[in-house]
Write a protein that binds this DNA or RNA. Structure first.
Lengths: 200, 200
DNA sequence: ATATAGAACGAACGATCGTGCTATTTATGC
DNA sequence: GCATAAATAGCACGATCGTTCGTTCTATAT
């Protein structure tokens, strides 16, 4: 036989665990994630799950990384297939909007940001790195739109990135507490105003 | 003697506990708040602390309420001494800005919003009520500014409230992760643009 | 001063936490 | 098919969790 039966058996199980862990962390946050809970959710023993990560903190870091990967795959990568400049930037925002719709009941990345902003340690560092990296991607897309003349040439790139991010925070916040539909409308209206005010 | 020595001895102790609990919850969130930790922080026994609240959930609700009271006292009440309309609205934003500076290492109300947005129960309901109440106050102040002609007569009150709130979320977020100073600048710049675009 | 009520303590409970360690099962390489 | 290695289970540990209960201390009222 030997299609090298399971070269990634370990990795596959780990992915399954992370899949469940991600779902649990969406509800309870990374701090609310416990190995016992996760194990019974996956259908494994506590020690079986534990062996894949070595510590709870490493598990949390892995879940954070899972969130990062999924966000990039859902929001950034599809947008990179759009032409540089405003089309790509608007695609990022549109994909992000859909991400928020799919994650209105809890986003690991955002809850991690508020869980670890006031502490220190590996998770704090991981969250800051993730957020800084995403902000950087956002700024790159904005800068290209400025260079191509799709946005006003005096656009403050970091400022616009901040405002875009703030609106998405507002969307997540209101969607989680008051429902997605109204929050989505407000966010759309705000973005239209935002694009207009940076129009060349 | 009898100056009715301590009519509020119980209430005073409760306030002391809540003061410590509020500080701990700023760091660890309401979900990270534990009675044992709190007791040793206050310098009391676990059961002594527990007796003041009856359950952990009631303690968490009391801390949430403490946060609400402090926010109102710090942000809303001083602004109510300003004349109605734009002055009052700007005072609210300015006080809120200072609140964010003082709470850059963690705000109970905001972390509670992200901890309980995807669950149900008394804490979820409390958070939603608190947030809805604050949004309502914000809208009241905006509506007055519109009525007095300080803002464009076609201003969408709920929309402006959403955008103000989103900017403050951005401030909290960036201040916690990247430092207050830059986040503060961005927020100020965004507000100036915001006021201008709703100017009559 | 003494009786009474209130507040805080101390110990214990069952449960769960993260983390080791040792079997046992399962999959791989010859 | 068998030896070997990897993956998972089982069990136990110390710690901490929220909660209960009975006791002790403190402050009030007579």
């Amino acid at each position: 036989m030997t299609i090298v039966t399971q070269p990634g058996k370990r990795a596959a199980t780990r992915d399954t665990i992370l899949d469940h862990a991600y779902a649990l962390a969406r509800r309870d946050g990374l701090e609310g994630l416990s190995i016992g809970n996760l194990a019974s959710d996956v259908g494994m023993s506590k020690s079986g799950v534990f062996a894949h990560f070595g510590s709870r903190e490493d598990l949390q870091l892995a879940v954070l990384n899972t969130g990062r990967q999924r966000f990039v795959a859902r929001v950034l990568l599809p947008a990179l297939r759009q032409p540089r400049g405003l089309p790509r930037l608007r695609a990022i925002v549109a994909n992000w909007f859909e991400w928020a719709r799919e994650h209105k009941s809890g986003c690991v990345l955002l809850s991690a940001a508020s869980e670890y902003d006031g502490r220190d340690g590996a998770l704090h560092d991981g969250v800051v790195a993730q957020q800084a990296g995403w902000r950087d991607e956002l700024q790159k897309a904005i800068a290209q739109a400025v260079e191509l003349g799709h946005l006003r040439s005096d656009t403050d790139v970091a400022q616009l990135a901040f405002e875009i991010y703030a609106l998405m925070l507002g969307l997540h916040h209101d969607a989680g507490l008051f429902g997605f539909d109204e929050a989505g409308q407000r966010t759309r209206a705000a973005f239209e105003r935002l694009w207009r005010s940076w129009q060349p």
